[in-house]
Write a protein that binds this DNA or RNA. Structure first.
Length: 448
RNA sequence: GUGACCGUAGCUCAAUUGGUUAGAGCACUGGACUGUGGCUCCAGGGGUUGAGGGUUCGAUCCCCUUCGGUCACCCCA
């Protein structure tokens, strides 16, 4: 039996990889402009880190972690999210001595043992951002502004809605929670079984229930926003004022909640209606208690995570490779030897070259060149070799010219540039179909 | 973890109530066309019908199990 990939994981094939490169380069560009620096982290940590950092009673820790014992018997876990690792590194390497806030981003795969579904996988990827050591509401607004800018950069701004809320803090939330539980118990008869159960376990999440029969009760439920203590209310007002000043549109969504106690005040999500049940493309908020909980200084922190698969789904489509500048067709072994050397030289100069291997008929090679979409083809057979010449054929017109074999490299390097030399996206000269060059595409200094 | 639907070639899909050698298009390779592409035609390579078991003279089709996919619940990115 053939070996197949594991459930819930997927390969990112060449047709799709340029989309990911586009995401990654947009992230580096945008986050860099806001002063964020990349941190690269291990994919697994001691299980204890996640158990403490995410919360023992959460679904993630209770049933979704990829946990295993290494050879010494120590319990390790593939990271289900990045925040705990970022903070662990922040504490472990004393990054807290740097000017605050310490602004970090990281990206890569996360692992959760869940049933796969549209926009949800067992190995998935996140872009993760954390601003640590500053509790000013402007940091929340600034981080949200960066998130919005990132999606604007990708052309997705008008397909996403920004929802924000305030979760209060350790002073005002307990009082609200008590009040909410009281209300939910009163109206338990009109709630679904799940909501009745959650009323005791995790009352804030009840507000999240999507079942229509629960809506009337939940819509009338007391709102956390009405219970915010003065400092939290002021904080939320200021966050919104900053967002308004930046011209960022949002809706205050009082159903937006977080499961863990260390989340305080600002919470936000970017939502879409285009991905089925998985409507959150990015989510974040403030978690002032977490650094201390993990054994660090009492530093405040705020941040967000972007689900990369979900962004790629929104971007949609696939890409076709950009054609090389020229296709070299040797006829026979001797010609191949010469053209291989020429190709090596021209590629050194950053010009993409495709090369035949002299094993097929000229006709077949030309057909292949045509299908690759190349503009120029070089033909060198016995005749040309004998004269130290090469034929350069312009495919569209069919016109050919003969050049000295010795100067073929210069001729090829001087071919008009088709691909955009700046971005990761270029248009084919035919105009219709877009093609992609790798984000590492090089333009040689001699040919800007 | 629960539920529904679905697995046939690299891709998109066929295959009479269960019927003998599982087909087509696209893609790939070659030929018609000895060293000159786009069009056309022909041919070829490719499949343990996801896997395992069962019923049957006979299973892609019916049954069971399992793996995977899709969607939803749960939860989240």
């Amino acid at each position: 039996m053939n070996i197949k990939s594991v459930r819930g994981v997927h390969d990112i094939l060449p047709a799709e990889a340029p989309l990911w490169q586009r995401l990654e380069s947009a992230a580096r560009r945008v986050f860099g402009a806001y002063g964020y620096r990349e941190i690269r982290l291990p994919l697994f940590e001691r299980t204890e880190l996640f158990a403490r950092g995410i919360g023992e009673v959460t679904d993630i820790v209770q049933k979704e972690m990829y946990t295993f014992a290494d050879r010494t018997g120590e319990s390790l876990t593939l990271r289900p999210e990045a925040t705990a690792s970022v903070l662990r590194a922040y504490i472990e390497h004393g990054l807290h001595v740097q000017p605050k806030p310490v602004k970090l981003y990281t990206m890569g795969p996360m692992f959760r043992y869940e049933r796969p579904q549209a926009g949800r996988y067992r190995q998935f990827h996140q872009l993760d951002v954390e601003a640590i050591g500053e509790d000013h509401p402007a940091v929340d607004a600034e981080v949200i502004g960066m998130l919005v800018r990132f999606f604007a950069e990708l052309g997705l701004a008008d397909r996403l809605a920004l929802h924000i809320n305030s979760l209060g803090d350790g002073v005002c939330r307990p009082a609200y929670r008590e009040r909410l539980v009281e209300y939910l118990r009163q109206h338990a008869a009109r709630l679904c079984a799940e909501c009745r159960d959650r009323t005791e376990r995790n009352p804030l999440r009840v507000l999240d229930c999507k079942k229509p029969e629960c809506r009337p009760v939940l819509d009338q439920a007391p709102s956390l926003l009405d219970f915010l203590c003065d400092p939290c209310a002021d904080n939320f007002t200021r966050v919104r004022a900053y967002l308004d000043a930046m011209g960022i549109r949002y809706v205050v969504d009082r159903r937006l909640v977080r499961g863990f106690d260390y989340y305080v005040r600002t919470a936000f999500e970017l939502l879409t209606t285009e991905l089925g049940a998985q409507n959150a493309v990015a989510g974040g908020g403030r978690y002032d208690g977490l650094v201390a909980l993990l054994g660090g200084p009492p530093d405040a922190a705020t941040g967000f995570a972007i689900g990369m698969e979900r962004v790629v789904l929104l971007l949609g489509g696939t890409t076709t490779p950009c054609p090389p500048a020229a296709f070299l067709i040797p006829l026979g072994d001797q010609a191949l030897t010469r053209l291989l050397a020429v190709a090596q030289e021209v590629r050194e100069r950053g010009v993409p070259i495709e090369l035949g291997y002299g094993t097929r008929k000229l006709r077949a090679e030309l057909e292949r060149a045509h299908r690759l979409g190349v503009d120029h083809v070089v033909i060198v057979g016995e005749t040309e070799l004998g004269r130290e010449e090469a034929i350069i054929r312009e495919m569209k017109s069919g016109s050919q010219r003969t050049v000295r074999l010795a100067s073929l490299g210069d001729e090829l390097a001087a071919l008009p540039e088709r691909a955009s030399s700046t971005g990761a996206t270029a248009l084919r000269s035919e105009g219709a179909a877009a093609c992609e060059v790798g984000s590492a595409a090089v333009t040689s200094p001699e040919h800007p």
